[in-house]
């Protein structure tokens, strides 16, 4: 694996190896010394063109637990003002001697552009690019699902996962659809028609406009955050109507299988796509997702930075 800018960079066996290794990474938390020497002397740069405290600290913790040096480069720019030039930034990081670059960017494809450019030799990890992909989120979701629902399996076959909400703008959904397919799970995307992408018939998954009709079938449901800026852009009439049809509340949760799980990539709009009751229920694994995020990102860093001098 040369880079991780898309789930498409992974074969099934690589994806499983990342999940298996993440399990070993999780063990380090229980040891006397909560740190591994694996990436001692290596430099990981967090390159963030878009704010995301959660993802940044997760990668930071992951790199530090593997003994890597971590540099955070916050190059804020929006699609309106170009801000920091990606090429210049990349060349700066190259000069600093970065071994891996974790990039978060508002532009779809930015991670791939960086990886395929000759501006930098470092390994590129996509920490979310525009409305394209967020592969480590999908990997941590898969890890969470496997730990809880299929501990004796390598893949996720036999599971049916619903992804609910703003699929159209969701990089989490895109990566999850690819990974769930790779790991042989079934996937159903649930949203009003305005929030489902054009051409979804050709995606390798089912889709539905009706959450209630799907609940009984699902082993887990991933609730997506509805971005503030979508709320006034005619994707749905009102937050109240959205919440009524697509919000996850206790009544809906009770219609799901007893062992089914609730996931959310965070940050949540409590009361909008998910009620506080559901978020804090026993079936919610939202906090495990955060913990697992560190282990999975450790695993990804280890996989990318192994054998790079061979």
């Amino acid at each position: 694996m040369k880079h991780l800018y898309s789930i498409n960079n992974l074969s099934k066996s690589e994806a499983i190896s990342i999940l298996d290794t993440a399990k070993s990474m999780a063990e380090v938390g229980g040891k006397a010394v909560k740190k591994l020497p694996t990436l001692l002397g290596r430099t990981v740069v967090n390159l963030f063109f878009e704010d995301s405290t959660r993802t940044r600290i997760s990668f930071e913790a992951a790199a530090k637990r593997l003994s890597a040096d971590v540099i955070t480069f916050s190059a804020k720019g929006s699609s309106v003002s170009k801000g920091e030039n990606l090429k210049d930034t990349a060349q700066t990081l190259e000069a600093i001697g970065a071994d891996a670059v974790v990039i978060r960017h508002w532009a779809s494809g930015a991670a791939e552009t960086l990886a395929q450019s000759n501006w930098i030799n470092a390994k590129v990890i996509n920490a979310g690019d525009g409305t394209h992909e967020h592969p480590t989120q999908a990997l941590l979701d898969a890890f969470t699902l496997r730990e809880s629902l299929a501990p004796n399996q390598k893949d996720l076959s036999g599971l049916k996962i619903g992804i609910v909400g703003d699929i159209l703008h969701s990089r989490v959904a895109r990566s999850n659809v690819l990974l769930l397919n790779l790991l042989n799970a079934q996937c159903v995307l649930i949203a009003p028609p305005t929030l489902l992408p054009i051409g979804i018939e050709n995606w390798n998954c089912q889709y539905s406009y009706d959450l209630d009709s799907q609940l009984a079938e699902l082993d887990a449901v991933m609730m997506l955050r509805v971005q503030q800026e979508r709320m006034n852009a005619a994707f749905f009439p009102s937050t109240r109507e959205y919440s009524r049809d697509f919000g996850l509340n206790s009544t809906r949760l009770s219609q799901m299988k007893p062992q089914s799980l609730v996931l959310h990539p965070g940050p949540m709009n409590r009361g909008m796509e998910i009620t506080a009751e559901v978020a804090d229920s026993n079936q919610s694994v939202i906090r495990s997702q955060v913990t697992n995020g560190v282990s999975v990102r450790m695993s990804v860093l280890y996989h990318l930075l192994s054998g790079d001098a061979a």
Partner: peptide
């Protein structure tokens, strides 16, 4: 508005506004 490429199954996959 903010369109980046042809709107199609491909634009959906690439996450570019169609």
């Amino acid at each position: 508005l903010n369109a980046q490429m042809n709107e199609s199954a491909l634009s959906s996959t690439l996450g570019l506004t169609g």
